[in-house]
């Protein structure tokens, strides 16, 4: 039953996507047809989106269909959604990538091309090292790097990626920014490279480190937000260790600019109830992200202030265009 509905949803999406732009569906009863949620990335982004859309479908009474438009560091999906009609039937599962995509010149529009709907979750990056190094804190790492004439090998998921930005900001704040050799790996491979000892340190999502940390195969030195990660409660923040860094990734929903306020409100409401559900809470614990609902207006402020922050950071790192 469920699968046939999903499949119908997919087919409907397939059929309507081409015609959607031309149809002006602004009826009193929103929604009266399936809503397409564009997903920009795989990994946890995709997992959370799948669950969120399932829960929102139940709230809205119409299927919310997660549709993957990956690639180009988010540019492909953002460009697609920005070109659709602002009627609430095309929304995007967005993140800080709206600012990084813009500031690295991959998309010709910025966050103002979208109306924020709601922030849904945050993920706090964590820094791990191989236990054979003997490092227990950021200052151990800092001292070792300063004493050595070798560069620290740090695994990231691609130049200009969020893990790259976070690593660069952290090591810059620690005063060892010029002794880092960044090594790009594809999705999720950095922990293995760290286990095998081919790299010295890596910043990834806490969920990827928990199992290794429990088994004593990796040491997690710090998280980069201003609060500790729920899934790694014993790991101190960088700020607690005297390094002034506060970076976390948020994910939320947005629609093309000009979407009517009452439709935004309906979507915001559905998102809020989905986030408050038990199933979502449970998944947050399992996957290692934090529930972080914010309404449209506050979410908009977060996006705007982040855009300035990432603009400055990218310029400092020489990645801005």
């Amino acid at each position: 039953m469920n699968i046939s509905r999903k499949f119908c949803g997919l087919l409907t999406a397939a059929v309507t996507a081409s015609t959607l732009v031309f149809s002006s569906a602004e009826s009193a009863e929103f929604p009266d047809k399936p809503i397409e949620m564009t997903v920009l990335f795989g990994g946890t982004a995709n997992t959370i989106a799948q669950l969120l859309s399932e829960l929102m479908s139940a709230e809205l009474g119409q299927p919310v269909v997660p549709v993957a438009r990956k690639g180009g560091g988010g540019a492909v999906g953002y460009s697609y959604v920005v070109g659709t009609a602002p009627n609430g039937y095309n929304i995007v599962w967005n993140s800080n990538s709206i600012s990084t995509s813009r500031r690295t010149g991959r998309i010709p529009f910025d966050y103002t091309a979208f109306t924020p709907i709601a922030r849904v979750s945050t993920e706090i990056p964590a820094l791990a090292v191989n236990p054979s190094t003997g490092w227990e804190s950021l200052s151990d790492l800092q001292a070792a790097v300063k004493a050595s004439d070798r560069k620290l090998k740090v695994g990231i998921s691609g130049k200009g990626s969020f893990t790259h930005l976070t690593s660069a900001a952290l090591f810059d704040a620690m005063g060892i920014g010029d002794k880092i050799n960044f090594i790009s790996y594809g999705d999720g491979k950095a922990p293995v490279e760290l286990l095998a000892g081919r790299i010295d340190a890596a910043i990834q999502w806490p969920g990827q480190f928990v199992s290794y940390s429990q088994a004593g195969d990796l040491t997690v030195l710090a998280v980069t937000a201003d609060t500790r990660a729920e899934i790694l409660p014993e790991v101190p923040t960088a700020m607690e260790q005297g390094v002034d860094v506060n970076i976390s990734m948020w994910r939320g929903l947005a629609a093309p600019a000009g979407t009517p306020p009452e439709i935004v409100a309906a979507l915001q409401d559905a998102a809020r109830r989905a986030v408050e559900s038990d199933q979502f809470t449970e998944a947050a614990g399992n996957i290692g992200f934090a529930k972080a609902y914010l309404g449209a207006e506050e979410f908009g402020n977060v996006i705007a202030s982040d855009d300035v922050f990432y603009g400055a950071l990218l310029s400092k790192l020489g990645l801005a265009k």
Binding site: G42, T47, Q50, G207, S211, Y212, Q214, A215, N286, I287
Partner: peptide
């Protein structure tokens, strides 16, 4: 990767502790 997502949702976190 999709199988992994399914496992994670059900609270099965792959890794040495699994």
């Amino acid at each position: 990767a999709i199988v992994l997502a399914g496992l994670m949702i059900h609270g099965i976190v792959p890794g040495p502790a699994l």
